[in-house]
Design a protein around this nucleic acid. Structure first.
Lengths: 216, 216
DNA sequence: GTCTATAAACGGATAGAC
DNA sequence: GTCTATCCGTTTATAGAC
């Protein structure tokens, strides 16, 4: 139970997210993060005793945000082919979140080394994420063609999202993640769903090109 | 013209590839690379004056290897839907190359930061690679359904390859890059090519599951 | 071309005062 | 909880001998 009272911890976590995103883990310095918060480097270490501990705390916080967002989705929209509509929404959210997505791409790539402190965490996370997508696909498998391999497909969908994100981060103004993923998902539905067109229509209407923010 | 005579340079380049792959750029030390070669750190700096210069040399060398490999492919096999068969072969080659692929994934992820010395290089490279795939698709566009968006599709194909590679590097024994990409490419061909089945058959026969190494 | 020696800077972590 | 001061390891890069 991490009750209330530690506003400093959250300040530090947020600053660390930003700095890790900007410089990666190894180049980020505790002093730099501390400066963002307005305290000294030693002051920071009072809240997180070591740098790796800070890193894992950041990753868990980021993951918690994602979970909260997923929990807001309609529960019946998380299975079967309709899953793709929600993943498209996720891609759009990532685009709007901008820099905060970067910590995943930057750290995930960086973690693919023998001794990176986040390597186990990312290995674990990919296991969970792909298993979750696979479960979603299997739950709606009766709406899919019988020859669809849900395990392979789950890895593929996650791969497309990651790969597009990398390209987008390198050239944000030239790469349209949302358009590319919509194109992919549309084709995927047409080639795997038994009754694709209603879902395709849903996909086309979800996430209107530039989200109009003055309606509610 | 980088004539002959500098065997040392190539030794260093190879050692740097290995060490960058193992630890990423920022964590790799010049002393560690020099040790692999059997010379001192100062001795290494005689051949490559700074660490960033060594990095770009490594990236260019890696890229040159890829080009040489691509040049060996049948020239008429690089366009249209048949392009996917050769990309499947590339995925298989990457799997067999193992650690040397890692430098791309590790460095590409690391490069997504504001001031990374390889950032411009990777931005550039993705531009070239996606343009090349797009050109290949366009060249064989008469065998594709007319509604295929070759630009978006090129980014998608590259994304799948990168994303699968990331998952594979984190769990080499659990993730089957080749199977996943074959599954993807098969579905892609079926949903975009006008006459898919011959290509699907080609895809199924290319890259036999575990390459039997004792035949020649 | 390669070495030793060293400069110069940086980063994580600790000790102890307030 | 936060600070200052400091220790100690690491790293890139340079100087100069051989």
């Amino acid at each position: 139970m991490v009750t209330r009272g530690d506003a400093r911890r959250e300040q530090i976590l947020y600053a660390a997210m930003v700095v890790f995103a900007d410089h990666g883990y190894h180049r980020a310095s505790l002093a730099g993060i501390a400066e963002h918060v307005g305290i000294s480097q030693a002051g920071l270490l009072h809240h997180f005793p070591t740098k790796p501990r800070l890193l894992t705390a950041v990753l868990e916080a980021r993951d918690r945000l994602d979970r909260e967002w997923l929990a807001e989705l309609d529960p019946d929209g998380r299975t079967g082919p309709r899953l793709l509509v929600n993943l498209l929404r996720l891609v759009d959210r990532n685009r709007r979140l901008g820099g905060l997505v970067q910590i995943y791409t930057a750290l995930a790539g960086e973690s693919v080394t023998d001794d990176h402190p986040a390597r186990a965490w990312f290995t674990d996370r990919y296991g969970r994420v792909t298993a979750s997508v696979e479960a979603g696909l299997l739950a709606g498998a009766d709406a899919l063609r019988p020859d669809v391999d849900c395990a392979l497909l789950a890895r593929e969908v996650v791969a497309v999202m990651d790969g597009l994100q990398l390209q987008w981060l390198l050239r944000p103004d030239e790469v349209d993640m949302v358009a590319a993923f919509r194109d992919y998902a549309t084709r995927l539905i047409r080639s795997t769903a038994l009754d694709p067109e209603p879902l395709v229509a849903l996909l086309a209407s979800a996430v209107p090109v530039p989200l109009p923010a003055h309606a509610g």
